[in-house]
Design a protein around this nucleic acid. Structure first.
Length: 563
RNA sequence: GCGCCGUUAGCUCAAUUGGAUAGAGCGUUGGUCUACGGAACCAAAGGCUAGGGAUUCGAGUUCCUUACGGCGCACCA
């Protein structure tokens, strides 16, 4: 039930549309004031009365009932208090109905529309470092959130599998590497070869690398065998990390996939008269729009990253017929995407407006930017294993008799890593430190998981108690706050999708867990004063537990029953 | 130089998109323990929202400007 609509329909302000009233309804800063509020200041001019007077008159005229229990005018605001029991009834009705279907908070607002999400996009032969975390967990969360809201999400891992660096890699491998070593050392062994090449490269070696890259492109058997070997090593390596982070993809079409689709796009650019020569290169001039030119073909005729992205955009539109296409990529590439989207627009494609760059902030280390060459890198698997290790250690201290310690520690440790990357607004830069990563206190997933474990522990003792079924109880402040927090979950999920901001869900988790813990401390459930109260509180505990679990699940974080 | 982004408590961050007294966590100080799980709860201290203008009933939020920081600006990805 839409309470705002209920209020708006019953509120009549001369010369003001119900729609506008609906949109103006806000939430007061303090619950004691009310549950909804209408600021009356903007009506003052039209009605030629003071806001305070308008609010008072409206308060007098408003018909209170079993839904809106009281209305009051304070400082030009019209405050509405909802009937607590009614609020809980409608919440519980919606919750049970939704849980029978796809879960509370889900909806069909997407109507099956397709959203392509380009995220993570690993580079072949490069291990996963802490800088890859954001795109991976942000994209993974958006993927789940959009599906939850009735969209059809298509996860795309736009592999970095094309470029002269792979020529360098083959050159380095043939020079210093061997099969046993790479099989033993995996992706790090490959990366070491690449790093060594870059530090020792001479003119001749660079030329050799270019030649090897040419061989890959021209279909040379040995070069391609090596390259495909590196590729499969990389994919099985990242696959393990994706499994731990609960991230999935529907497509692994990388850059090389689009090479043969470039000529058609170039042809289209020519047809539209957009392609001009500049300093030997083929470019789209964007000076009118205050941007550097978009280089389509280098002066030697080769394609660029941008060209492949352009071809990929057209391919995705044709293949998936998306209604939205998201690129979860750091803000470093702001200009690139502005150019890309502008070029698509200039080509006359109406879907240019559906392209969205979901930009996020950069990660650095405490002593500056990361640098693979200088060895200043933090590998993601190290962070994961250290967090899981710490979780295991705390577990054996606090809960030595717990079964499946490994499974629980994995959920706690990995969850903390994911949550840490999703808790703040995505645009903020972050400085990685093990101190922060290993902190399980305060506003963390561990706190939320612990809250769920507490709730589960209560519920375990109440298996014979039925759920609330209409008994009249008067919710107290704690219970009421909890109901309101839980009832705000669907709106939170929607807002997270609209703003491409999973942190809104992460924030909701911590807020709601805090409210639950207050409820837990102050309100006995198992030994509640009456049977009705026990049922009511069991129901609250159940809905809190399930909704918190679902919320963390949307972020890719598992919740153990006990911890 | 030009463009984009950021700046809120000692630290890390919120603030329902222009609403009422700017909120959390960490840290600090002091409480709650014979408990439905203390990985918890309560309380205190801590703010001219980087500075200055403007817009209006009302600005952390919009506009202009200055400072500081980050990123980007032609054949890398």
């Amino acid at each position: 039930m839409d309470h705002k609509a209920y209020i708006a329909e019953r509120l009549h302000v001369a010369g003001v549309e119900t729609q506008e009233i609906y949109a103006s309804l806000a939430v007061p800063p303090d619950t004691s004031l009310g549950d909804y509020a209408l600021p009356c200041f903007k009506f003052a001019k039209v009605l030629h009365k003071s806001p305070a007077l308008i609010a008072e008159e409206l308060a007098q005229a408003f018909p209170t009932d079993g839904v809106v229990s009281s209305v009051s005018a304070v400082n030009g605001y019209l405050n509405f208090k909802m009937d607590r029991m009614h609020l809980f009834e409608t919440f519980w009705a919606e919750f049970t109905a939704a849980e029978m279907e796809s879960g509370y908070g889900s909806s069909d607002m997407g109507g099956g529309k397709t959203v392509c999400i380009d995220y993570s996009s690993v580079n072949i032969a490069k291990p996963f470092h802490i800088g890859h975390l954001s795109t991976t967990v942000l994209g993974g969360a958006l993927y789940r959130i959009f599906n939850f809201l009735g969209y059809r999400a298509v996860g795309i891992n736009h592999l970095g599998d094309y470029g002269t660096q792979f020529g360098k890699l083959i050159s380095a491998y043939k020079r210093w590497g061997n099969r046993e070593e790479v099989e033993r050392g995996g992706i790090h062994a490959i990366n070491d070869l690449y790093v060594r090449f870059n530090s020792e490269a001479t003119e001749e070696m660079e030329a050799e690398a270019r030649e090897y890259f040419r061989l890959i492109e021209s279909g040379d058997r040995e070069a391609n065998e090596l390259f495909n070997w590196f590729k499969s090593l990389t994919l099985s390596y990242v696959g393990k990390i994706y499994d731990r982070l609960h991230v999935t993809f529907d497509s692994y079409c990388g850059e090389s996939f689009y090479i043969d689709k470039i000529p058609a796009v170039v042809e289209k650019l020519k047809e539209k008269g957009l392609l001009v020569e500049s300093r030997g290169a083929q470019v789209v001039d964007l000076e009118k729009f205050g941007m550097a030119p978009f280089i389509v073909l280098r002066s030697d005729g080769a394609s660029l990253y941008a060209t492949r992205d352009l071809a990929a955009a057209f391919y995705r539109k044709e293949t998936y017929g998306f209604d939205k296409c998201l690129y979860v990529v750091a803000y470093q590439q702001n200009l690139h995407f502005q150019q890309l989207f502008k070029v698509i627009e200039l080509m006359g494609e109406p879907w240019a407006k559906d392209m969205v760059h979901v930009a996020y902030g950069m990660v650095s280390l405490e002593d500056g930017a990361m640098s693979t060459r200088k060895g200043k890198v933090v590998w993601l698997e190290d962070v994961l294993s250290r967090c899981v290790e710490k979780a295991k250690q705390i577990l054996s201290e606090k809960n030595p008799d717990l079964g499946d310690k490994d499974g629980v520690a994995e959920k706690v440790g990995v969850g903390a890593v994911i949550f840490g990357a999703l808790y703040n607004n995505k645009i903020k830069d972050t400085v990685f430190s093990y101190d922060k990563a290993l902190n399980f206190d305060g506003e963390t997933s561990v706190y939320v998981q612990y809250t769920c474990a507490r709730a589960a522990s209560v519920l375990e003792k109440l298996t014979d108690t039925p759920f609330w079924s209409g008994e009249n109880v008067q919710p107290n402040e704690r219970e009421f706050e909890l109901v309101k927090a839980l009832a705000s979950f669907p709106d939170t999920v929607r807002a997270a999708a609209e703003n491409y901001e999973p942190s809104m869900i992460a924030r909701w988790c911590v807020d709601t867990a805090q409210i639950f813990n207050k409820f837990y401390i102050e309100c006995r459930v198992v030994n509640a004063e009456t049977e009705e109260l026990r049922r009511f509180r069991k129901t609250l505990t159940e809905t809190a537990n399930r909704t918190l679990r679902r919320a963390l699940g949307l972020l890719g974080i598992g919740v153990p029953e006990k911890m």
